[in-house]
């Protein structure tokens, strides 16, 4: 069974229907890239998966259980939604690190707040909470090492280059242990010479077997790293398939002209 199953997601803003029925699924450990021209709805789709937008219709299932169902969404409490959204992580185009916190604190803030809440609910003794905090810090240190920024753990975001900031934000997303990590054009806010270090980190995450969805304009990267490619146009999946097929033998005229325009 697929790890992620997305069925008939639609979303409209006022009169414009931005997503017109999106269906796809994703196996554990696979990488899905979403490509498509500007305004085709890629960001909106990722935001729906991360509960930043509420789809008008559709179902999102992870591990076989529906974490979002438009028909029942209104009945869900804020706490339930919060629980569901943690199945996903999101790396933003503009990093969105918290400027007043050090790199380490950016990684540990949310997990610690969560541990504190859980400790309160289950009346955990203080010593055990401290133990949990230590584990969170240890995990954060491992993640920083994985993105190659161990020596920057005490730096503040304004002291880092764009590429470093984006690597921190990847580590921060991973600190919440999401099942599926989403990226929205992770390199498009970066100078060209800095994109490489971020793409390298994503490749390494793939090699570790992370399940990821990457919205990107870097076609070479998508081709190398992905198991599956979705090409979106005007709010629908216009064409999808293995990278060799999508890039090597595109069928849809829209995809053909899109690839020409890029190349």
């Amino acid at each position: 069974m697929a790890l992620l199953e997305v069925k008939n997601i639609t979303k409209r803003f006022g009169k414009t229907e931005v997503l017109k029925g999106i269906d796809f699924s994703l196996e554990k450990g696979q990488v899905l890239s979403i490509i498509g021209s500007s305004g085709s709805g890629k960001t909106t789709l990722l935001r729906c998966l991360n509960f930043l937008e509420t789809p008008d219709t559709g179902v999102i299932s992870v591990d076989g259980s529906a974490i979002f169902d438009a028909a029942e969404h209104k009945k869900k409490s804020a706490a339930e939604i919060r629980e569901s959204r943690l199945r996903f992580g999101l790396v933003f185009q503009s990093f969105n690190l918290f400027p007043q916190y050090s790199v380490m604190e950016n990684l540990t803030l949310a997990p610690k707040l969560r541990a504190k809440e859980e400790a309160k609910q289950s009346k955990l003794p203080h010593a055990e909470l401290k133990q949990k905090f230590a584990e969170i810090e240890e995990h954060a240190a491992e993640l920083l090492a994985a993105v190659g920024l161990s020596e920057k753990k005490d730096a503040y975001p304004c002291q880092l280059s764009g590429g470093q900031q984006q690597r921190v934000s990847i580590a921060r997303a991973l600190a919440m242990k999401p099942d599926i990590l989403c990226f929205d054009e992770p390199t498009s806010a970066l100078d060209p010479e800095l994109t490489g270090e971020v793409l390298k980190v994503i490749k390494e995450l793939r090699d570790e077997g992370r399940t990821m969805i990457v919205v990107t304009h870097e076609m070479d990267f998508a081709r190398q790293v992905s198991d599956h490619i979705i090409f979106m146009a005007n709010g629908i999946i216009e064409e999808e398939g293995a990278p060799e097929k999508v890039f090597g033998a595109p069928e849809s005229p829209l995809l053909q002209s899109f690839l020409k325009g890029i190349g």
């Binding site: 509960f51 959204r85 996903f88 999101l90 503009s94 969105n96 949310a110």
Partner: peptide, 27 residues
Amino acid sequence: IPRGQYEAGEVLGMTKSQIFFKVILMQ
């Protein structure tokens, strides 16, 4: 304060009040 700061807190599973007091306020 840019929307992205709130959204970053939200996708990390923070509550509205945690976001305000831990992320937004000092900025």
